[in-house]
């Protein structure tokens, strides 16, 4: 009987599984300025991956390139092995990505319910499916259920962040991309939202997270990428990042 090293077993399991998201040498820029250079990253099924780095490192631009809000100038983006680069955000959503943007971007003059329904746009011809997802969203965030008829713009920042996440979940994504989860929120609200996200992760949802509170992000992540001036300065486990001081290096130099 041979003993299997648990670490190499885990590594084998991870490499055997097809990544949900894979970018290869992706360049994202605006005009002549490149914000992201040759970004290669991947998110495997069930993983929580954090994208860290100082302001201007290219985190938000990476997400925009992945979802097609900005067309990558070079490289590829694949979801479950199917290329989606240059095909726009609607295709990314259909492929299983959902984006919770920086600043939440809920539709302010619309009810909570209408905001949520819009998240299920691609299922719009299946009324029952939309209704059942709506029920799931309200079960996940009961505070939204209490405010279902209220205009989204009249809610608190935390409630709007819940709405933005719930709206993204309405498309039943395989991978949730969250830009600045905790920005402007109280620690208690962040805890509440993170708890919900961890539950969803246990049920199989993968998450790519941009988060300003580095330690918070490291606690919940399986792997981290540290970006610096548009390229990947480090990738690996949070423990390894701490051991070699990768994050401090990126932030201070």
């Amino acid at each position: 009987m041979t003993m299997t090293d648990p670490v190499s077993a885990a590594v084998a399991a991870v490499t055997a599984a097809k990544p949900i998201l894979a970018t290869r040498a992706m360049d994202v820029g605006y005009g002549n300025v490149l914000a992201v250079r040759r970004l290669t990253l991947q998110v495997n099924p069930g993983e929580i991956v954090a994208l860290l780095g100082p302001n201007g490192a290219g985190k938000t631009s990476s997400l925009r390139g992945i979802t097609g809000l900005v067309r990558p100038q070079a490289g590829t983006v694949s979801v479950n092995g199917v290329r989606i680069d240059s095909r726009g955000p609607a295709v990314a959503v259909q492929a299983g990505l959902a984006h919770v943007p920086e600043g939440r971007r809920v539709f302010p003059e619309m009810s909570v319910t209408d905001n949520l329904r819009l998240g299920a746009w691609s299922a719009r011809r299946k009324q029952k499916l939309v209704d059942s997802r709506l029920a799931d969203a309200y079960a996940l965030f009961p505070r939204l259920a209490e405010r279902r008829g209220q205009l989204a713009g009249s809610m608190s920042g935390g409630e709007q962040q819940m709405l933005a996440i719930a709206r993204a979940l309405m498309s039943e994504p395989k991978l949730l991309l969250i830009d600045e989860l905790s920005l402007g929120l109280s620690p208690l609200v962040v805890d509440e939202i993170l708890a919900r996200l961890l539950e969803l992760n246990k049920e199989g949802l993968s998450i790519l997270l941009i988060e300003q509170f580095v330690h918070r992000a490291m606690e919940v992540s399986d792997r981290v990428y540290v970006l610096k001036k548009g390229h990947v300065a480090f990738s690996g486990t949070p423990a390894a990042a701490i051991r070699i001081g990768a994050v401090e290096e990126a932030y201070h130099l």
Binding site: L69, A90, H99, P101, R105, F107, E109, W121, S122
Partner: peptide, 23 residues
């Protein structure tokens, strides 16, 4: 209607409408 709510959403925030996946 779905299209109507989509029109209203675009009127309020076209960028967010793209993010959500509206055509």
């Amino acid at each position: 209607t779905w299209v109507g709510v989509g029109i209203t959403a675009i009127a309020q925030d076209p960028g967010a409408a793209r993010i959500v996946g509206l055509p």
